[in-house]
Design a binder for these strands. Structure first.
Length: 270
DNA sequence: TGTTTATGCCGAC
DNA sequence: TCGGCCTAAACAC
């Protein structure tokens, strides 16, 4: 579920639902293997949140002595945040629970791939393509001659060191609309196309953020948001596909089939 | 009923 | 680079 747009939405959800609340306890579901120690959260605390690419932070501040701590998350494939009013049923697969008088802020994650720790942003992940767009661009242009860039675009776009927040549906969507052979390397592109690519890494996340996420078939529209454009712009689970070097499906425009044909499971047969 | 697939990442070789 | 981590829905038979 979560790429940059969805993580941003989750962060704002936490921000809104925790506003003005005092939490008194943090609990982990014992079935989850996380070893991050939460036991020293004994004093009442408040929670605010920010996000950067695919990372999400809880800023935890003890109300008594204003001690601040950052609990930083990656949300994995299925992590999300919920608020459970006091007395209501806690859904299955809720693995972290922050208790307040009015309800529980919960981290729900069917597959348990989400991770959290007391730490800052991962320095090996790039600036946020939306919120820190100029730094995001700078990071790429300064490093474009590194070995990391000696890969086809469809592999490069999942490298979180440069494209923090881009995931599987965004890479397919961005490359489809860039309308270029996805087997090319970044260095093969004209300056115009390089700039266009980086601009799309901002525009599409903003678009799906405004559409309340790119959730596809599980799409729910509780707030009667305008969903127009999603099916026209989202390019995922359509066209041609190959498995990339990490065995993740890459979807692309069939017109580039000949260019892509040298990649079988992400490996060039040349 | 069995197999494949899923918006991600980590760490062991 | 590759398997492992997990559950569940979709699909194949």
């Amino acid at each position: 579920m979560p790429e940059i747009s969805e993580v941003r939405i989750m962060s704002e959800f936490i921000q809104l639902s925790s506003k003005n609340l005092i939490f008194t306890k943090a609990e982990k579901n014992p079935i989850h293997k996380s070893k991050t120690d939460l036991s020293f959260l004994k004093n009442p605390f408040s929670i605010t949140s920010t996000s950067r690419g695919k990372e999400l932070k809880l800023h935890i501040q003890e109300t008594a002595d204003s001690t601040k701590k950052d609990l930083t998350f990656t949300m994995g494939m299925s992590g999300s945040w919920i608020f459970i009013p006091t007395g209501e049923f806690v859904p299955l697969h809720t693995h972290l629970l922050f208790y307040s008088i009015v309800g529980i802020l919960g981290m729900n994650d069917v597959r348990r791939f989400a991770r959290w720790d007391w730490r800052d942003w991962n320095p090996d992940r790039s600036p946020d393509p939306v919120e820190e767009h100029e730094q995001f661009r700078k990071n790429i242009f300064e490093n474009q001659h590194n070995r990391n860039f000696k890969r086809p675009l469809f592999e490069l776009l999942l490298d979180q060191k440069y494209f923090n927040g881009i995931g599987n549906y965004l890479r397919s969507t961005i490359l489809y609309h860039l309308d270029i052979d996805p087997s090319l390397e970044f260095g093969n592109l004209s300056n115009k196309k390089k700039n266009e690519l980086l601009t799309l890494c901002q525009d599409f996340p903003i678009f799906f953020y405004q559409k309340n996420g790119g959730q596809l078939s599980t799409w729910k529209n509780p707030h009667n948001l305008d969903t127009s454009g999603i099916h026209e712009l989202l390019f995922y689970k359509m066209g041609n596909k190959i498995l990339d070097s990490n065995k993740r499906t890459f979807w692309y425009n069939p017109k580039y089939e000949k260019n892509m044909s040298s990649f079988i499971k992400g490996t060039s047969i040349i």
